[in-house]
Design a protein around this nucleic acid. Structure first.
Lengths: 230, 230
DNA sequence: ATTATCTATAGATCTATAGATAATGC
DNA sequence: ATTATCTATAGATCTATAGATAATGC
């Protein structure tokens, strides 16, 4: 046995980690090599998981794509589940950052609801294109793992709520008799429309061949009519 | 080897099958036993696939749940893939029937757009509750198998088109300047909203705790406003 | 005579480990 | 001295088959 538990888990891999009050230290060179290898495994895993699915991808496949050995993989990741979790965590972190940026009120100051909705849709469409396969991975892992499912529910909720709040801040624009309900509905609707357009499973729909611009135009028109924007 | 190819595939299991021009015949009693067993395997597989996923379910699990042996399973189904296909085909057939009923113009005669949308949503919500797990199975199999993916795309397209056609028939109600595009957009929107509400992965959204009736009301209001119904 | 079912197991993966060898920085 | 990597393989599944036994209807 050559277990080196310090190498397992993302939190233990940092330059300096504190466990209790004792700071642990890792050599610079080894660390750099470690991180490069871990990234190679994560990149390989994310690509293969996104392409063929998590279940369909063996750890051997991942090692081969990362151009490392299985032994090395198991030196860095306790088991396959740990590798999957690490891939998901990396995606989750990136998504969290994006969501925080999207729902930050400061970045939307002086925008009308129509402008806000338009830019939200445009941004989301661009964002999802940069990360092919992330949807597939999160959906598959969520099906298997309740914790991941809960994490993504929370993320979606945060996005929906942030969006609804941004809309409600502009309540003076809204002619709908019940702005509270209406803004929630619109947030749900935008999420649903985006999911349908981006999910390779749901698309192509009738309008999927139309340009993103045309799609965005119609969604904005629909939201404007429903909210009775002044 | 005890291969009896006549037992493989759904089409070969009927009372009388024609291969070329020769009609083949199967005994009544054996046939009844066969069908009961095949149904037991299909029921067991659909339940397990829906609960734990196709990949996560072994043929041993299916045989155990069907209370038959593995040998018997392989007598009726050439391999696991054939079993999966049979399960999917059964679901597909049922969905096709539902879709045909839903988009049949005769059943919607004398309904306004608002009534049509309302009843379409209500029907769809009820329908999906009767078949738990079907969503998960079709999504997972579609990811693995391009043919199945294509089949479901065609089904969704048929539903969307049928719905858009029903709306366009009532073009006199529509105040939107471009009824062609608008009806397609609404069909897409309804599909997306239903998917979001029914997909265990996407829900819960902000309004998922609200009643189905409230959800339907808001969707109808949104569609009415967007189409500018007279 | 034919079809359906069972038990037992071969053969193919796939995950994970052991133990040896190489690289790194004190 | 410690960490990273490799090769080889043990052990656990899981799919699929072989061959024997039971049921069915001519």
């Amino acid at each position: 046995m050559r277990s080196s538990p310090a190498a397992f888990g993302r939190d233990d891999g940092g330059v300096v980690t504190t466990e209790g009050s004792a700071a642990r230290w890792q050599r610079r060179g080894e660390q750099a090599r470690s991180f490069a290898t871990q990234d190679a495994f994560l990149d390989a895993a994310e690509a293969l998981f996104g392409e063929h699915g998590v279940e369909q991808t063996s750890v051997t496949d991942v090692a081969a794509r990362a151009q490392r050995s299985i032994g090395s993989l198991y030196h860095h990741f306790e088991n396959k589940q740990t590798l999957v979790t690490a891939v998901v965590d990396r995606i989750t972190g990136d998504l969290e950052d994006s969501i925080d940026r999207v729902v930050d009120p400061a970045s939307w100051r002086d925008h009308t609801i129509a402008e806000l909705v338009r830019r939200y849709l445009t941004t989301s469409l661009e964002l999802s294109r940069d990360r092919p396969g992330y949807k597939r991975i999160t959906v598959e892992v969520s099906l298997m793992d309740p914790t991941t499912r809960e994490t993504y529910r929370r993320l979606r909720r945060r996005l929906d709520r942030g969006l609804a709040a941004l809309l409600l801040e502009r309540r003076s624009e809204i002619g709908h008799p019940d702005p509270e309900t209406a803004t929630k509905f619109v947030a749900d609707q935008l999420t649903a429309m985006l999911a349908a357009r981006l999910d390779p499973e749901l698309s192509p729909t009738l309008l999927s061949r139309s340009s993103n611009a045309a799609f965005v135009d119609e969604v904005v028109a629909s939201v404007s009519a429903y909210l009775r924007l002044r």
